[in-house]
Amino acid sequence: MPRILILAGLGLVLLSLPLWGSGYQQRSVVEFLYFLSLAMAWNLLAGYAGLVSIGQQAFVGIGAYALVVLAEDLGLNPFLTLPLAAAVAALAALPASWLLFRLQGAYFAVATWVIAEVLRLAANASIDWLGGGRGRAVRSLGGFERGLREDITFYAALALAAVAVAGAVWLLRSCTGLGLMAIRDSEPGAQAVGVETTRTKRRVYLFAAAITGAAGALIYITQINVRPDAAFSVNWAAYVIFIVVIGGIGTIEGPIIGTLIFLALREALSGLEGWSMLIFGAIAIAMMLFAPRGIWGLVTERWNIALFPIRRQMPARFIEKETT
């Protein structure tokens, strides 16, 4: 079982990183982990449920403001707000899904964005409570000693990414996942064989919202200041789409590879400001045209490997034996 050994080794390296890594490495890995969680959530939506959302920043912002309100107004420990931010985001996603699931395809995409815009404007308008355009800071984070805060942030990010990846794998291997893949291949066909298409999609949408909300809270634990234009920025959607498209949409491994490439590329282009977003956009277009299954798709075309196997293979007894 080399697969399990690789995963366990990776897990050990990550778990022990605060013991031997520098603060810079630790912060970089935190960034990797939250982008990975965001990408995993979007990948589930677009790659499996056929729900192409360009409004996931709505849940990043909801998570960020849940952190502010719960930690500052209600006095909770900021790190304990992470699961609550996930719950708040999922709760907000429920009425949003009633609205959005009336729309198909590209209309769904733009409507998710409109909802994120409404939330951005509402946060901007709420000057007394949420601080309007200047936003609010999570002051209670100042109560933690810096090294301790970074260590807790690191393990929280690790836990979030683990939940995102394990949750996605579990969801896809479950009955829901089987339904999802049927929906992806043909929605009327899935309906005909008894898949509850709307309920299945809603389940994925809520799960993705919860992960994105928790990631939003975590991002703003590292950034401390929550401003509506940044928290509800469409750039979150752009980054995540870039990550998943380059890594391989509809795979578990794709977002991992995509996040690594995205962060490396961003580092390499950091001096170029406007050019970097232009290059990201151009790469996404080129990938869609020439390698729509992403880098992981190119890998699996050549070699039959999988780090997180989710494909169902027909049991051997059903495969016709060749008579020789």
Binding site: A238, F280, G281, A282, I283, A284, I285
Partner: peptide, 16 residues
């Protein structure tokens, strides 16, 4: 989906 993603990418190319 490809058209949505391509035009979304194009939006960023044009803006920047």
């Amino acid at each position: 989906m490809p058209a949505v993603i391509i035009t979304f990418g194009l939006a960023f190319v044009i803006q920047n």
